[in-house]
Design a protein around this nucleic acid. Sequence first.
DNA 1: CTCTATGCAAAACCTTTGCATAGAA
DNA 2: TTCTATGCAAAGGTTTTGCATAGAG
Lengths: 145, 145
Amino acid sequence: MKSAKEVFNEYLKEKNLKHSKVRDMIIDIFLKTERHLTAEELYFLVSKKYSKIGFSTVYRTLKHLIRAGLCREIKLEDGITRYEHLYGHQHHDHIICIKCGKFVEVVEPQIEILQEGLFEKYGFIPKSHRMELYGICKKCIKKNK
Amino acid sequence: MKSAKEVFNEYLKEKNLKHSKVRDMIIDIFLKTERHLTAEELYFLVSKKYSKIGFSTVYRTLKHLIRAGLCREIKLEDGITRYEHLYGHQHHDHIICIKCGKFVEVVEPQIEILQEGLFEKYGFIPKSHRMELYGICKKCIKKNK
DNA sequence: CTCTATGCAAAACCTTTGCATAGAA
DNA sequence: TTCTATGCAAAGGTTTTGCATAGAG
C-alpha cells in the first residue's frame, strides 16, 4: 500500500502543484499527528517550527489534503471544524467526552447493517453517515468523585 | 399534555420575561413550521408578516425557545445551524437527501440499544448522541433518470 | 522565466453583543 | 414608572479571498 505521503505527492504532480518548505512541513505535521486537529491546533503546531506561517496557508493546505483524499472535515456539535485522517483508516464513528473533549474512534458493524436497512426502508441511495456518541469518559468520572 | 405554547408561557412567567408582538409572532411561526429551520429561514418567514424584524431578535428568541426546552440546535455537515422542535417529539435521528436537502426523522430502537452497548464498552456515561444518514431520496433518484 | 505558494490584510459568513429607544406590565 | 424587548450597527469567531511578493521547477 502506498504511504499517505506518496498519495499526496501523486496528487501534487497530477494537478501541477509544487512542493514547498512550508507545504511539506504542514503535511508532515498533519500526517504524524493522529488526532482530530482543528485548523488552529495545526497552525500552532506548525508555528513552533516556523513562526511566520499564516492561517491561510494552513487552511489552503488542508483543502489540498481533502482533495487528495487524505483528510476529512468533521463538524461536531460545538461547531468547530476538525480534520481527521482518512487514508488507511476504515470507516468509524466517534465517542466523545463532553468534559475533556477526548475522542475515541469506534466501529460497530451491526449498527452499519441497521443503517443500511434504514436507507432501504426510506428509499434512499446511501451515500454516507455519521454517528457521534457524547458522554463522560472514565477519567472524568473519577475526577468528579 | 401541555401545549408547546403553554410551556413557553410558563417559561416567560418563571423568568419574569414579557410577551411582545414580535416575540409571539416568531414563536407562533416557529411552532407551526414543522421543519428544521435555519435562523435565516425563520427570519424570512417572519419578515413576510413584519418586515422590520431584525436578525438579533430571531436569534434571541431561538435562545429562549431552547432554554424553555422547546427547541434544539443541530449542526449538520454543512456547518449551518438548524433549529428543530423538541417538545412532544421522541428522540430520533435523521436521514437527509444530499440533493434536495429533504429531512426525514427516523427511529430505530435496535441502534439505540447498540449505542448503549458502545458507551458501556468504552466506559462512558451516556449523555446524548446523534446520527445522520446522508443519501439520495426517491424523488431525486427519479429526477436524475 | 513562468507559474504556483505564501503572508498579510481584508472580506465573507454566521452569530452575539452594546446601546439607545420602544414597548409591556 | 420600571423593567424587558427591539432594531441597528458593531464586534466576534472561523474560514476564504485578493494581491503583491517570494519561491519552486
